[in-house]
Nucleic acid binder design. Structure first.
Lengths: 416, 416
DNA sequence: GCCTTTTTTCCGAGACTTGGAAAAAGTCTC
DNA sequence: GAGACTTTTTCCAAGTCTCGGAAAAAAGGC
């Protein structure tokens, strides 16, 4: 993987240093040639040469600063990532429909389009054509100079293949093993990647680690979605973790209690069977732990349950406490295998953190070695949908950055 | 971490390509300039230049092949890693004593020394001086041309700090937070690294992935030690996984059953509290699950229990089945978070795989998503001690390789 | 209007890799 | 046994990076 087995030559050096420069500008938002040199460790000459070349390629742009610095010396030229360099699409396939959001190369949202409709019966080609036409619909309102999207990232619930091209299985769909990426690529020519929505979420923090009430820096952390299901995204060693097979940290189906409550997945005792919306409702209403409701619990219903739990000590409060404990044990187990990490919560569960947090921390204490990680920082992002689109956009942009980094010098490339 | 934030220059290119060449020779055992070029992707010129330079530095050597190839053309010169380039020490601190094994730069064992004695009351300086004198003792029998050990890796049970310099806590010692590495370094000048023994084990497969009845290739895998405790080593993405804090995958203390059997660590329900030697004995003898024996269970006692379990259906067989189930659930949980991996078993438990394996696979089936990983390949290494020394040696050699890779050209370096 | 300051550009030097030519060191054939 | 043939290794000129320092550029300060 890394490159211990691949040689390095001038081309690799070039690509790497371009990558470093692009990455710096993504983080810094705006910079100058000199500041780039300082931040990357490159000499001023090299940083300047790379920046100038990226400008010639249209990847960076020099912008006029309004508030002129009244400082002495030759005024610096402000560099920015050029929004016009490309367009990317972040798509989402969920139970409620299909959604597309376009963004420019600087990451600014450009347009959205939605098809709110049942999706369970769709096949691969139908999904592909809906996503393709949503993309076209969103693009139709844009200025003629906006390029066509050159990358698309589709966030889905469920499992994808190692190559991020197929949906192996999704709770939103009846069919299995759908080659969505291939279909969309054939229709639009865009490069497409299919990702698990929860695994994707850490990408939203790639260049903006100071969110959700935490500054994650460049360190490891996890995102934890709590809602109809429970899903985790993991960032380890600067990389978003993706197992070769499932490409998902299936935290929701991490076993909590052997022979425990029945989960949607068919197994017994999963975290989700205690902490998913349906599990909380099931317990609050005193239903049997063997019943998995077909119907989806609405956010409104969950708000009612949370309200009741906040008001009085009763089955609702107990249900949230059990949910928190299951999550806490799950985190404790994760911390035992990996190491304690900051956690960013999102999803409907993130709106009930006041009910969940004490039980979560208690669960960690009881399950982690020496209770390590019980005091780990918790962050919180309210709007899951926005987070997923941001994550998809960031992921698509990173993929573009990589291909731009590998490009040859600007004067060698022919204009289209 | 990776190096996305570090620039690349000629020096980095040089170091990287030297690294790649050295790594190739470690894996291939013997090679030629041409074969090196082919294996690494470097041009013949570069591979040859690097190899020649490494020979001049004494890191590689050209050896006379006995069985001359009766092939046409200029005969190839066989390259080998030069054993004489350096000496490394692999040490072990265990309940029963302190042990040191020296090996040459080619990884061939040279000598050993042992101090079988109680260690519980030792402090950092005592441990350091014993290890230093054991090293000297082992080295004393060697030819005068053998260099002094330039790297030492100490494998210990328990937790080490992130910098691999201190023992934060070990079941073998009463004292805590001991700066062993610093002490030894002060005494001998050798660079020292302190590692958790279980975390270290995957290193033994670094250049020899075809062991324990499996060919692990360059893929991910885990080693699982089952004995007085239960410990895991994880190789992910070509790197031995080490959490920044504990530097150990604390598989033995992964919670199996909330409020379950009492573990040595004080928590309830750890895998070890079902699968450790003492837990198996406890259950086989019908003892209470709240009793943690102070005395260590001997291998002979375990063999008796295993014999009884093989002979008849009774509490012994049940104890092994429960142990297997706990391990299986643990693996299922690991596979849910990460992905299914091949497992190499070692330790006394590895001698009872016939008793454990069915329950382990059952546990995986019941706890992993869709039972994924229940058919994962199991390997098996009988001699744990040898494995740990090999792992320590490999780790020390890898560290030397890295520093050799970073060295300048041979003609620039002065001779000592 | 000239000096100072700071950023950017320019240029020669240095360190790699590379491809191809030349050399080396054998076997094979007649 | 000499020359042809093969294959590996070495040598060399060219190419492409980065780097450091000098020069240029573009302001403010006095």
């Amino acid at each position: 993987m890394k490159g211990l087995f691949a040689k390095t030559d001038a081309e690799a050096v070039r690509a790497h240093n371009r990558r470093v420069v692009i990455d710096h500008l993504r983080r810094a938002d705006s910079s100058t040639r000199r500041a780039t040199a300082q931040a990357t460790g490159l000499s001023v000459s090299s940083a300047s040469a790379i920046a100038t070349d990226l400008i010639r390629s249209g990847i960076f742009e020099e912008v006029e600063e309004d508030g002129r610095s009244a400082r002495r010396g030759r005024p610096e030229k402000t560099l920015r990532v050029a929004g016009s360099a490309a367009t990317v699409a972040a798509a989402k396939l969920a139970v409620g429909g299909l959604f597309v959001q376009l963004a420019d190369y600087a990451g600014r949202p450009l347009a959205t389009a939605a098809a709110e409709r049942p999706v369970a019966d769709l096949d691969a080609s139908e999904i592909a054509s809906i996503l393709a036409s949503l993309t076209e619909e969103a693009a139709s309102g844009l200025s003629g100079e906006t390029p066509k999207p050159s990358r698309m990232v589709v966030a889905v619930q469920g499992m994808t293949d190692a190559g991020h091209r197929r949906i192996l299985w999704s709770p939103a769909l009846k069919r299995r093993d759908l080659d969505i990426a291939g279909m969309i690529q054939a229709l639009t020519g865009t490069e497409v990647e299919i990702c698990n929505d929860c695994s994707l979420m850490p990408e939203a923090f790639r260049w903006r680690p100071d969110r959700g009430g935490l500054d994650l820096g460049t360190g490891d952390f996890a995102t934890l979605f709590i809602g109809f299901g429970v899903g985790m995204g993991l960032r380890l060693g600067g990389q978003t973790f993706g197992g070769p097979l499932s490409s998902a940290v299936e935290f929701g189906h991490l076993n909590h209690r052997p022979d425990g409550a029945l989960c949607r997945c068919g197994n017994r005792g999963c975290v989700e069977a205690y902490a998913g919306d349906y599990a909380i409702q099931r317990r609050a209403l005193g239903g049997p732990v063997d019943a998995v409701p077909a119907r989806r619990v609405t956010d409104a219903e969950m708000r009612v349950l949370a309200g009741a739990a906040r008001e009085r000590d009763g089955p609702e409060r107990d249900a949230f406490a059990q949910a928190g404990l299951a999550i806490g044990y799950g985190l404790g187990r994760l911390f035992t295998l990996i190491d304690p990490l900051p956690i960013v919560f999102t999803g409907s569960g993130a709106h009930a953190m006041d009910l969940l947090e004490p039980a979560i921390r208690r669960g960690i204490t009881q399950s982690a070695v020496a209770g390590q990680g019980a005091a780990v920082p918790f962050g919180h992002v309210a709007d899951v949908d926005a987070l997923v689109f941001e994550a998809g956009t960031a992921h698509a942009l990173a993929s573009l950055d990589e291909s731009f980094a590998r490009e040859g010098p600007a004067d060698e490339r022919q204009v289209a």
